[in-house]
Amino acid sequence: MRRTLSMVVNDQPGVLSRIAGLFTRRGYNIESLTVGTAEQPGLSRMTISTTGDEAELEQIIKQVEKLIDVISVVSIGEDALVARELMLIKVSASAPARSEINGIVEPFRASIVDVAHSSLIIQATGDTDKNDALVELLRPYGIIEIARTGVTALIRGQLVSA
């Protein structure tokens, strides 16, 4: 079962280390981790995408909550959240292939952000599955490099994540 943990943490040195260390020490899995400043100064929002069964996820949340620098943690199921990841893909693109690639990129609402002689950089935003699909469609053209940010997320509607 995949869950997204949205946490508000103190924006202080060592916080990332504490959280990552806890996951390592207790043998929990991290699929992706993003961190950036939150709405309040001095606080950061960290989003961790993890997998495990019900009991394991409950333990993860409780152990994370014990860290003094973690202000709040919520676990969000797939359906209740807006989850987005930014992806940059550098793909081989000879002149004839470009229009084809354009045709692939458009329905994904991705955009071409850099054009060189024989390559393009495409920027895509979406959930992980959508980005995965785009990668597969572009693979035949020759993927040179991929950089993905990992998922960041908020709960849908009025509820707040912290």
Binding site: P13, G14, S17, R18, G21, L22, R25, L67, I68, D69
Partner: peptide, 14 residues
Amino acid sequence: VMGITMPITKHSYQ
């Protein structure tokens, strides 16, 4: 020392 003791302290400060 903070790094070394992170998993075995309740909390730590520098």
